[in-house]
Write a protein that binds this DNA or RNA. Structure first.
Lengths: 194, 194
DNA sequence: CTGTTATTAGTACCAAGTGCTAATCCGGAA
DNA sequence: TTCCGGATTAGCACTTGGTACTAATAACAG
């Protein structure tokens, strides 16, 4: 016996997790056992066949593609918005957004939500963030629903600058605040928005 | 004839791009033609069979998964690091990171790179960002390589606070600066890191 | 030496195809 | 009308990567 059965099956599972593209035949060569043995191993461990494995991997892709398109363009879902006045978005924190070690959301996700909202609330096709000061007041955990409220301040900061203040809360507790100095470009001369 | 050949083939391509999981048989029902006709259509347009389509989609996933694991845990690749002293990371800006309308990188990506680096450079398992002030000095475009340099400042901000200053450049021009007030948790009493 | 477990072999069958040949259908030109 | 050609359909053999099942053999433990 080239290797104890248990060991082989453990490695088999690990191998297929890394690389789901291997056929039973390739696996049988890798472990120098017969194809039938591999089949029995898969059977015992409920590991599906190649084609099923590919199907689930491919499905995952298709889903994430849709998700990432949305969550990239505006990070967090905008619920309500009055241009140049105020806006509100929610962002559900999942396992993907937190540090594995302590389950606390990475700061840049909260920033991304607030920043996206600040960009969106500006009544300007090409608003950019110029400067920002932010505070992380309380740690946010997976499962939390973060509500961000952006308010456009009217006091002037100069010709093309606008101040947007964002306050993010979880269950009415403030977890994050940010001031965003937005730069309006408004050069609509060179073409309407697309 | 239920539909001109050309039209059907155009739709076929479009359909399969959206949903690569359809078999020839399902397609033949959808267009109310025979399976053979679908096969001929695929042949003429060089559209591979179901199993090949899934394989390529799945491949794409696996690649991106590797990428996103890295780029999420630490946004940008860390090139050099001296714990508690300084660190350096690079981040290549792609089409995915910019506003479609003007090709300028969204602020939160630059923030994410700097923030991740600030977290990483702290010699602490559980460092968190408490507060930050940042400046976006010059727009960053797709194709730019952003180099972020983080430096841990030694002056005390209080018991558990540390200041990290990050400067990001593109071709030696500063595009972003940020001050990060990091919170050290260091409660290693409750167990070693995993 | 015998029983049990592990492994291998072999067969029939399936899904979703490819590749090829042959038969039909259908519309327009001679 | 009749004939031609492209489009469509049918049919068959073969391929991959399996499942499901049975049977034989090997390996080892008591």
């Amino acid at each position: 016996m080239r290797m104890p059965k248990k060991e082989r099956q453990r490695l088999l599972g690990k191998l297929l997790k890394q690389n789901p593209f291997l056929t039973d035949e390739e696996l049988s060569e890798h472990f120098t056992v017969s194809v039938q043995t591999i089949r029995l191993d898969r059977l015992e461990h409920g590991i599906p066949e190649l084609r099923e494995r590919l199907k689930t991997v491919a499905t995952r892709t298709m889903k994430e593609e849709v998700k990432s398109l949305h969550s990239d363009e505006v990070f967090g879902d905008i619920i309500d918005m009055e241009l140049d006045e105020r806006a509100l978005s929610i962002f559900d924190v999942t396992e993907d957004h937190v540090f594995q070690r302590n389950g606390i959301a990475r700061g840049h996700h909260l920033f991304a939500q607030a920043n996206s909202l600040a960009v969106a609330v500006m009544n300007d096709d090409l608003a950019l963030t110029a400067k920002s000061a932010i505070d992380f007041l309380k740690p946010v955990k997976a499962g939390d629903r973060v509500v961000a409220r952006a308010e456009v301040k009217k006091e002037s900061l100069g010709e093309k600058r606008t101040l947007v203040v964002v306050v993010s809360t979880v269950n009415d507790e403030t977890v994050f605040t940010g001031e965003f100095h937005m730069y309006r470009t408004t050069d609509r001369k060179q073409g309407e928005m697309k």
